[in-house]
Amino acid sequence: MVTCKNCNNILNDTQKYCDECGAKIIQNRLKPKVLVAQVNEQFICLDNKFLKTFIHLFTQPETVIIGYINGTRKRYIDVLQYFAIALTLAGIQLFIMSTFFKETLYFQNGFADGFNATTNSKENNPFKDLNPDSFNKYQSLIYIATVPFYAFGTWITYYLLRERQFNFTEHIVINLYYYAQVIILTAVTAIISSIFGVDYMLVSSLLILPTIIYLFYILKRIFKDNFWATLLRFIIVGFVAVSLLIIAGMLFAFLVIILS
């Protein structure tokens, strides 16, 4: 007899997984070979959770997201873990680009100069001291802070339209999976494009429309509405989320200026 180290459930010697919490039974001490096997199982092999989660969020997002909400949480990567992986990858992307491909980030300075030029006088421009690098510094925080705005947008829209099968927390789960998928896709695309010398601003601009369409696709698959009903809800969601983000963005910009 053995005891599960996660929930203390009593198990048979032949069991490989706990029938109480579902955790894998680890009987070997940590060694390099064991760590390599775990990394391979989780991230490299074709049948791992990460690859399965990533693919199925494109092909059958309702299975991943609704399954997690309803309690099926062993088949795919946990939503918070998946979002954490996305943030880690985004951090790696920023490090690689700012260290080895810094020229692909030069658009930021041009953007800032253009933004400053929109006012008649720099003295009257409240953003004249804005340092674009500050946004890179707080990149992960911005990603995390943005999710509740999208979640509120989807929740309030469907709530007012009397589609209330998911509460606000469950809408956060929906948006976390969506946002994590977008971050991973953007980070990987940015790294690959930087290797070939493609401007990051161009890549980001080209990804805007696909990510918008992807959110529409997720909402349609999850709520099972027809095209026009989903489009109406999507427009309302976008209006609410963008309005809140504009307000929050202005507040954040002023905060960055004060702290810089």
Rank of each mutant, 00 (worst) to 15 (best):
I247H: 04
I172C: 13
A23W: 05
I195G: 14
L206H: 01
L219R: 01
L231W: 07
Y214C: 03
R221K: 13
I142K: 04
T88Q: 02
K31G: 11
S194A: 11
I142M: 05
F149L: 14
D13F: 04
T3L: 09
Y17R: 14
V188M: 09
I192F: 12
F95R: 06
F227W: 02
Q139D: 12
L215S: 14
K220A: 08
Y17V: 12
R75V: 14
G67W: 04
F83M: 09
E123C: 03
D133A: 15
I25N: 04
A117S: 11
Y214R: 02
S134F: 07
R75I: 11
P132R: 02
T72E: 15
L209F: 15
L176R: 05
I92N: 00
Q42N: 09
M97V: 13
R233F: 02
F239K: 00
Y138C: 06
A241Y: 07
Y106Q: 00
L219V: 01
S204K: 05
F152S: 12
Y143D: 11
T189K: 00
T3G: 01
A190P: 05
S134W: 01
V39N: 00
F127D: 04
M1F: 06
L130P: 02
T118C: 09
L87W: 09
L232H: 08
G91C: 06
C21G: 02
F152K: 09
Q38W: 09
M201W: 10
Y82S: 07
N131M: 06
V237E: 07
V79Q: 11
